[in-house]
Design a protein around this nucleic acid. Structure first.
Length: 158
DNA sequence: GCCAACGTTGGC
DNA sequence: GCCAACGTTGGC
């Protein structure tokens, strides 16, 4: 898969954790609720089935990448935007003219140990990671092959 | 709980 | 189209 791309998805584990993903049927879940255009564009325009996903726990202890997932379904409209009862309801989005999109991801591997944010900051190989940039709040970010390899390698150590 | 760094909204 | 006000994110 020469053109496989890599991403990092942030999630607050109190809202949805990596463990929650692993307990889904088929370990697969809709990544719904994203209401940021840049993150949407990544999902809608750039993600392909098979892309790698680093699963990052934000606003938690520890702040860390805890495992990997893969994109299991290419983007399609996020139906939660049409649901008035949903927390992420957006009346501007309709089935005829959807604004928000999502992909499905499938849990792949839980790390043998979390790769914590502090450690990532100290790692010269991750110096340029978007995640570590001041003020970078995007919940979905692209990750380079090198960054992916480094983090997966760190997370695979005993 | 604080607050910096955003993104969005809406008046003009 | 500008930009102040506001809301949110997310590390600290």
């Amino acid at each position: 898969m020469a053109d496989r791309r890599y991403w990092i998805f942030k999630s607050e584990p109190t809202a949805y954790s990596f463990n929650d993903l692993l307990q889904e049927p088929g370990q697969t879940a809709e990544w719904d609720g994203v209401r940021n255009y840049q993150a949407r564009n990544f999902m809608r325009d750039e993600m392909k089935v098979g892309d790698g996903v680093l699963f990052y726990h934000s606003s938690s202890k520890p702040l860390a990448v805890v495992g990997t997932a893969t994109v299991a379904r290419e983007s399609y409209p996020d139906h939660t935007a049409w649901d008035p009862a949903d927390q992420h309801h957006d009346p501007k989005s309709t089935p005829d003219n959807p604004i928000w999109f999502m992909v499905d991801i499938r849990g792949e591997r839980q790390f043998t140990r979390p790769v914590i944010l502090e450690e990532m900051k100290d790692n010269p190989r991750l110096r340029n990671m978007l995640l570590l940039r001041r003020g970078m709040r995007l919940s979905i970010q692209p990750v380079t092959r090198e960054e992916w390899d480094e983090i997966v390698s760190l997370g695979s150590r005993g």
